[in-house]
Amino acid sequence: MFGLAYGDSLGAPTEFLTMKQIQRRFGDHGPTQLNGDPALVTDDTQMAIAVGAALLDALESPPFTPDLITPMWRRRFVDWLNSPDNNRAPGNTCLRACRGLAAGKPWVDATVAGSKGCGANMRVAPVGLAPGLTDETRAGASQLQAALTHGHPTGLAASELTAFAVRWLADGMAPADLPAALRDRCHDQRAVYHERWLDTLWQRPGVDAPETFIARGWDECLERLDALDEALARGDRASDPCEITGAGWTAEEAMATGLLCFLLFPDEPVEAIWRGAASSGDSDSIACLAGAFAGAHLGMDAWPAEWAARIEYADRLTRLGDAWD
């Protein structure tokens, strides 16, 4: 959780800059130090905390089911929408969907059906960290938290992959084994629609079956994993990480480029989030995902000790970390 926030904070000032602008303003390495006290984060961390706080509440009242967690996530997302701190250039999809949730619409009507923006998976790390969930429950919950705002199947699949990457790394998977494991997950889940969690989300014009709907998401994620393999084979640790895996504005690109930054520096977490922050795309989301992967792999001691007291929402991040470490 702290790695996610660190990456988010470092990437925030470079989000809409080109590589030339980043280098001109911050030097060749991009931003390398947290700025401010507290060091502010963006909506990425704010919404990840919202997802995590609702999960904490739900796990205290088992069994963990979609009927239990859905109203909790709705309330937390609406609280985020109305928060005075919600002034960090939040995504239009999240704002639009959360307004619908606030108005009392069923979530399948409030969600933005065609959006696969990275807001679907920038916040999913807590679902990967939460203990005691079966694979089916973790998959369904990962997709549901995405679907509340982003109804595109690729947003759902990328969110599940992001959550499982966090879980596997926290459980000790070697980073080098991660791309193949994610690819296997894509193939295994290609025709699996979690109806208990997603209800009638699949029902769209031109879609004949839920399996058809969800398969598109897994196929698009597989394309990005192909690009990830290409980028890793090149092994370029200095160029813009968005060149091959994508700029990160969409969920599958954010997942792939965040993974690339982490896998280029699997034992150097600060370098990983520096690389994500110095990118031409959605830098804060890319760096926050790289930070989540790095933190899951290496733990809290891998980060500079002085950062923990300076990052915004440190108390909330600590509450989640203490619960799930």
Score class of each variant (00 low, 15 high):
residue 213 F to K: 11
residue 211 E to D: 01
residue 196 R to I: 09
residue 268 E to I: 00
residue 152 H to I: 02
residue 231 A to I: 02
residue 155 G to V: 01
residue 145 Q to V: 12
residue 283 S to G: 05
residue 219 D to I: 00
residue 146 A to Y: 07
residue 262 F to E: 08
residue 275 R to L: 14
residue 279 S to M: 10
residue 243 E to I: 13
residue 287 A to I: 11
residue 189 Q to L: 15
residue 206 G to W: 02
residue 205 P to Y: 07
residue 225 L to E: 14
residue 277 A to R: 01
residue 171 D to V: 04
residue 276 G to N: 11
residue 208 D to W: 00
residue 229 D to P: 03
residue 270 V to W: 01
residue 155 G to F: 08
residue 282 D to M: 03
residue 247 A to D: 10
residue 253 E to H: 11
residue 191 A to W: 01
residue 282 D to F: 05
residue 219 D to C: 03
residue 203 Q to K: 10
residue 188 D to G: 11
residue 173 M to A: 13
residue 289 L to A: 09
residue 196 R to V: 10
residue 183 R to I: 13
residue 254 A to K: 14
residue 165 A to C: 04
residue 147 A to E: 10
residue 286 I to N: 11
residue 262 F to L: 05
residue 263 L to T: 14
residue 209 A to R: 00
residue 181 A to L: 11
residue 169 L to N: 11
residue 246 G to L: 08
residue 179 P to M: 02
residue 175 P to A: 07
residue 206 G to E: 03
residue 209 A to T: 06
residue 153 P to R: 07
residue 215 A to C: 03
residue 281 G to D: 10
residue 206 G to M: 01
residue 209 A to V: 03
residue 256 A to K: 03
residue 262 F to P: 02
residue 170 A to F: 02
residue 224 R to W: 08
residue 146 A to R: 07
residue 160 E to Y: 13
residue 201 L to Y: 06
residue 167 R to Q: 08
residue 231 A to H: 00
residue 168 W to I: 04
residue 244 I to W: 03
residue 154 T to A: 09
residue 205 P to Q: 15
residue 157 A to E: 14
residue 242 C to Q: 03
residue 200 T to H: 12
residue 271 E to K: 14
residue 260 L to W: 08
residue 216 R to K: 09
residue 241 P to R: 05
residue 222 L to C: 09
residue 179 P to F: 08
residue 256 A to S: 05
residue 158 A to F: 14
residue 290 A to K: 04
residue 177 D to T: 09
residue 217 G to L: 04
residue 198 L to N: 13
residue 175 P to S: 11
residue 207 V to R: 03
residue 172 G to R: 12
residue 273 I to M: 11
residue 258 G to K: 03
residue 188 D to M: 14
residue 187 H to I: 14
residue 276 G to E: 12
residue 268 E to M: 06
residue 166 V to L: 06
residue 255 M to P: 06
residue 222 L to A: 14
residue 282 D to T: 07
residue 249 W to Q: 13
residue 219 D to A: 15
residue 168 W to C: 10
residue 260 L to Q: 00
residue 187 H to D: 13
residue 188 D to T: 15
residue 174 A to D: 15
residue 179 P to K: 05
residue 218 W to P: 01
residue 260 L to H: 03
residue 256 A to V: 06
residue 218 W to V: 08
residue 281 G to F: 10
residue 257 T to D: 11
residue 265 F to P: 00
residue 262 F to Q: 03
residue 253 E to V: 09
residue 172 G to H: 03
residue 151 G to F: 11
residue 279 S to K: 06
residue 244 I to N: 05
residue 249 W to H: 15
residue 176 A to G: 13
residue 150 H to W: 06
residue 220 E to H: 12
residue 176 A to P: 00
residue 167 R to S: 07
residue 190 R to I: 01
residue 276 G to A: 02
residue 147 A to C: 09
residue 179 P to V: 14
residue 145 Q to K: 04
residue 159 S to M: 08
residue 246 G to N: 06
residue 248 G to L: 08
residue 281 G to V: 07
residue 174 A to N: 13
residue 180 A to F: 10
residue 219 D to Y: 08
residue 167 R to F: 06
residue 163 A to F: 02
residue 273 I to A: 09
residue 257 T to Q: 08
residue 146 A to Q: 12
residue 240 D to T: 04
residue 193 Y to C: 00
